[in-house]
Simulated assay, not measured.
Amino acid sequence: MPVLFLIIVGAAAGFIATRVMDLKTDLITTVVIGMLGALIGGLVLRFLLMLSGMAAGFVGAVLGAMLLIWAWKAIRGRR
């Protein structure tokens, strides 16, 4: 069940993050961005802000996905 939850939250977070950051991706890339963002953002928010529960996980997922997109654009822009 946790894997299914991560995919659902990742899809939602990736969708929101790609729309906010104006990035056009396919469904698989959006879900992967959201899942990686969930890992990054969830850990950062839990350690820095001491938030717990699903709210911290979802907010962290969106913020982490946006951070991942920003870093990807910055690295891709240097080439």
Rank of each mutant, 00 (worst) to 15 (best):
A12K: 00
G34C: 02
K24I: 01
M1E: 12
I28M: 10
G77F: 02
M66Y: 10
L67G: 15
T25A: 15
V44A: 14
W72F: 06
A38P: 00
L49P: 00
G53V: 00
G42A: 07
R78T: 07
S52D: 06
I28A: 13
L48R: 00
G77W: 02
L23N: 05
G10F: 06
V9G: 04
P2R: 03
A12M: 13
A11E: 11
A71V: 11
I69H: 09
L43V: 05
I40R: 04
M1T: 11
L27H: 06
V32P: 03
I7M: 11
M50I: 01
G37R: 09
G57I: 08
G41D: 01
A12V: 14
M54G: 09
F58H: 06
A13Q: 05
I28Q: 11
L49W: 03
I75H: 13
A65P: 06
V62F: 11
I28W: 08
L49I: 02
A11G: 15
L6N: 12
V3H: 13
K24G: 04
V44F: 13
V59N: 09
M50K: 08
A55Q: 08
D22E: 15
V3P: 08
L27P: 02
L51R: 00
L68N: 10
L39F: 08
R78A: 14
V62A: 15
A13K: 05
V31L: 11
G14M: 02
G41Q: 01
V59H: 07
L39W: 10
F15W: 14
A38K: 01
A13N: 06
P2S: 06
I75W: 15
T30D: 14
F15N: 13
I33D: 03
G64T: 02
R19I: 06
L23W: 09
A71N: 02
M66H: 09
G57S: 08
V20C: 09
I8N: 02
G57E: 04
T29Q: 13
L63C: 07
L36F: 06
L27R: 05
G37N: 09
G10V: 07
M1K: 10
L23V: 15
L67Y: 04
I16C: 09
R76Q: 12
M21Q: 13
F58P: 04
F47P: 00
G64I: 03
L4Q: 12
L27K: 02
L36P: 01
I40P: 07
L36G: 15
K73Q: 15
A38V: 01
T30Y: 04
V9N: 08
F5C: 06
V32D: 07
L36C: 12
I75L: 15
L39Q: 09
R19Y: 12
L45D: 01
D22H: 14
A56P: 00
L63P: 02
V3Y: 14
G41S: 01
V62G: 14
G37H: 08
M54H: 04
G41C: 01
L45R: 03
R79C: 04
L43G: 15
S52G: 12
